[in-house]
Design a protein around this nucleic acid. Sequence first.
DNA 1: TTAGATAGTAAGTGCTTACTAACAGTTAAT
DNA 2: ATTAACTGTTAGTAAGCACTTACTATCTAA
Lengths: 198, 198
Amino acid sequence: MTATKEKIIEAAYSCFAEKGYIGTTTREIAKTAGVSEITLFRYFRTKAALFEAVINRYSILSDLKKIASENNDKNIEETIKHIAKRIYLTLRKKKKLIRIILSEITNHPNEITEIYNKFLARIDSMLLKIFEQKKEKIELKENLNLQLAVRGFHCMLFAFFQTNEIFLKKELSEQEIEETINTFVNILFEGIKKEGNK
Amino acid sequence: MTATKEKIIEAAYSCFAEKGYIGTTTREIAKTAGVSEITLFRYFRTKAALFEAVINRYSILSDLKKIASENNDKNIEETIKHIAKRIYLTLRKKKKLIRIILSEITNHPNEITEIYNKFLARIDSMLLKIFEQKKEKIELKENLNLQLAVRGFHCMLFAFFQTNEIFLKKELSEQEIEETINTFVNILFEGIKKEGNK
DNA sequence: TTAGATAGTAAGTGCTTACTAACAGTTAAT
DNA sequence: ATTAACTGTTAGTAAGCACTTACTATCTAA
């Protein structure tokens, strides 16, 4: 991978995130990358091929894999809090990719659905694994559908990210992120009702 | 509003949801509506004007207003469950609008942000109002940030909808929806831990 | 019967866009 | 110094698109 090629992919990544795939011209990408348009086409035969390269280059899966591989010796609540924060920060780091995923369901449904599926599966399994590892340390409600609960939890996190950082363009501070995650994790484990009132 | 105009708006709504604003041609919309292209332009001077008409015609705010106005005599858990289900079904009814909102952040950021803001504010306030009305019937944890909890709850619902119905194209059955909402509401109030283990 | 509103056909304008052809300049390794 | 790899300039092609012009057909109400 030459530096030029990398520059082009990076420029395309930014442009696609900002204006969408169709809304971005190859001329624009070339200009952003600081190369001529024909250089772009020498590296990528078509705009679609460039799109694919962008998607592969900026995959979020490796980030998630890394998070999943970190071992946690804390108790389960703290572990989940820590992972939730890591996920949130990863989403932010890959904010442009998330924008592309959201805006390209219409134009690249197959590619996007595939990515989204893998993304989902990985987060699901990462969280479920934690519960599996620490199952002796926590007693769950008997009638609980854990898969659904876990799915709901990261949906909460994802939509919260999406709302703030994508739609409202508001970058939360470290402190706000932590408060949010504490609240969400407390809800997951304890709910909002005061103890003893159940 | 003539029948022809209505037909055009409806066709545009479907096309925009399916292929995005830029990805849809006016010819395509006209064909879907069963009118000639020039008729389309007689009613809407520009494609952008048509887009605006679509957004106004298929607003989700009135649906939410209606849900909020229904009075609920049940206890708070049941009320929230009921409202959550109504919201989910409303999202599904307006699935095309949600697709448009997601995919047009890049092309119509201002309009979309405005819509999203109102949507958020309305759901927030609808849920907070319930808690306000029934505050004597429930004792919440002292250190709880209720606004954040409420926001987290409908984020959970929204992202769950988005995941299934938009990305995975899977239409949940009534039963699945109810199981999901029961799980989510139980988590909100009680958490996943077994009682007495806290 | 007539007038006005509504719809259609057909052709076309002007612009943008992905992608190409042909040629020339630059750099680095041998 | 020469070659090979890489990059740039300039111009252009073919297609698609939003939107227009000019004219015609249909229908309803008075």
